[in-house]
Design a protein around this nucleic acid. Structure first.
Lengths: 217, 217
DNA sequence: GCAGAAAAGTGCGTGCACGCAAGTTTGCGT
DNA sequence: ACGCAAACTTGCGTGCACGCACTTTTCTGC
């Protein structure tokens, strides 16, 4: 039997405590509001020392956010890779990312509402966009047949940056619609924003693909 | 008389203390090594309270780095804008950035060496790349005649991301050449790396420029 | 199985970031 | 010139991140 790489029980328990910690963090934050949650509380809820807590997370925000965005990092690579070779790199990447963000990582709407409300959490949420960079680099390199290692890195970084801009914009407008008591999101849904922000990068992705294809024959 | 925007003496003094703080931070870090510099020391050297210190900088690393990279943020916009309208957007941006990073912010080589040596400082240095994003956004918007506010944002973010990748790569190799006792930088100078990493974005910049030009007539 | 190595968990100490609520300086209108 | 308002500075208190050294748990080779 093939263990999921590396020793089994060890990684398994690690993953378990990690999830327990972030779950507890989210639960407590929802119950009492994020400002009334001490690191000690989270640690105690899981039955682990505070010091151990911060071996896993180096900020409360990280722990809370992780409950919502944990597997995104892992899903990106698969999402891009599974697109048929027929479709272009640009559309493959764009559709994969849109999928990634439309299917809610799922737990609850209230979690997202909590995140979009509190500034510290919003910031942490924006920061998670950079987590897709490395998986994306590999996925793009796979599609390009990695002739030059730099191009995939730059493209992945740019895509991640565009995603960040989209999320920032989304947060900005949703915040505005909350405070202003507006009815619906003025500037569009997150998927729409993602498409809008990723569109300007299409030429770069296409060009890289053409270069790679030309080089391959 | 036109003050440099906003009230004169106030901003002037603020800027003075800011510079004094970062200068002191750098000086002390060079003298004793960065690990032997307490925040209190920096504050005391400038004659200001520690609390005030962190009204200006929220980490020692920031303060030290700022001594080297302070005006970069301001110079980018000017650097892009001053390129003649004849040259394309892509080359204007690339050349401006290369200039920005080749002309050393200047102070001393030892400062840079200190930065490239200590991990915490390296990380802070990498983070400074994102500071060019907003000025770049304005500069690009200016050249495109800002029809759509999103495109400049995405492009600027992508360029900043590419610059970050270049700096990361540069730091990686210089670190390797230090530890391995290698002679010269294996993968190229920073300017070369910048050109390499920015090249894949050229199609995106060109395309945006074409779209803007088409729209203008 | 068992011994030794590797890794995760823990306790402790230190330096720091940051909110808050004064105190102090600067700028502006009249 | 004068006083008010806004901006900057400061002291204090709290929670936290993180290095270090040590214990406990898990893995590996024999």
């Amino acid at each position: 039997m093939v263990t999921t790489r590396r020793t089994g029980l060890r990684e398994q328990k690690k993953q378990a405590t990690r999830e327990a910690l972030s779950a507890a963090a989210l639960r407590l934050a929802l119950e009492r509001g994020p400002d009334n949650v001490r690191v000690d509380d989270i640690a105690e809820a899981v039955g682990v020392s505070p010091r151990t807590y911060n071996n896993y997370f180096s900020s409360r925000e990280q722990a809370i956010i992780a409950a919502v965005t944990s597997e995104r990092e892992a899903r990106v690579a698969a999402a891009v890779a599974e697109r048929p070779d027929g479709v272009g790199l640009a559309t493959a990447v764009i559709e994969a990312i849109v999928d990634l963000y439309t299917d809610p990582g799922e737990p609850g709407r209230d979690a997202l509402l909590l995140i979009t409300t509190r500034p510290a959490l919003r910031e942490a949420f924006v920061d998670t966009t950079s987590a897709i960079e490395h998986p994306l680099t590999d996925a793009i390199a796979g599609r390009l047949g990695d002739v030059d290692p730099h191009t995939p890195r730059v493209l992945a970084a740019s895509v991640a940056a565009a995603v960040r801009v989209a999320v920032e914009q989304w947060l900005r407008t949703t915040a505005a619609s909350f405070t202003a008591g507006g009815l619906v999101v003025p500037s569009g849904s997150l998927p729409d924003l993602l498409r809008t922000m990723l569109a300007p990068l299409t030429p770069a992705l296409d060009a890289a693909e053409q270069r790679a294809r030309r080089r391959r024959r």
